[in-house]
Amino acid sequence: MRAPPNSTDLPVLLPMARPVRASEIGKVELGRAGLWAMLVVAAIGLIGEARAAPSDPGLLALLWKWAPLIFQGFLFNLLVSFLSMAIGTAAGAVLGLAQVSLLPQVRQASWFATQFFRNAPWLVLLFYCMFLLPFEIRLFDYVIPLPAWFKATIGLALPVMANMAEIVRGGVQSVPAAQLESAEALAFTRRQILWQIILPQCVTRMTPPWMNLYAILTMATPLISIVGVQESMSLTRAALNAEGRIELLVPMYLMLLVWFFLYCYPIARWTIRLERRFAVKI
């Protein structure tokens, strides 16, 4: 506590300390943590009170009614994101390694494939997969059905594959050439060098961009609603149609946005943390 220059040092004459200080600090912290939640609730509540006719059920009640169904759709989005990521990662790793192959044909072909899928709009790739892939595959006596959601998963896996390929290529090339040289001098084969020396060194470097790619993919999964796959986005639209209340539009989409935010934001934070940690390590 600093006294103004010409004042007395008698405690009685000092300005009174503000007793609310401590609780204010608490409020600030609480407010920061719950800012999003409060904003959402406030927005929904305000819109509901302002527009709902007295006899109709409140907007919050309607949201509550539809939330479980839409949340199931949201979980389906996550399932599609897992599958696309798994397929895209596996295919992208192969494609990325092909780009550092010793064979020029392999290198060129994989480079072309990577660039093609990396520079294509995701939605167009999605449409391509929906229309080009058959609805079932005949393998001898077996008929393997290809449902629309699976085709859409493949459609999303393609750009993931191309981006993953770039992550792998960049990771491999980020390992100093001297490592390769000293491994060669020790008579390691090229395969051993790749698996034992290069890849273990760049996996940590590839993890943050890979997580980033996953977050982007997750946020792109509602695209599959456009090609007719039922997920959170199409279910939200269906719920809105069923209720037929225009004022429900904003809060319902907002609810979906918040779910995506709550899922993707921690991934982004975690990615940044990992990036920082790996940056310090030699």
Partner: peptide, 29 residues
């Protein structure tokens, strides 16, 4: 395998301990 080489910049494998660095080539190669 017959010609050993040591470099100016050491070029040890940073993800392996000193012992593992020494053991790697005899085991794998």
């Amino acid at each position: 395998r017959k010609v050993g080489m040591v470099f100016q910049q050491y070029n040890l494998f940073p993800h392996k301990t000193a012992l593992q660095n020494v053991m790697m080539a005899p085991i794998q190669v």
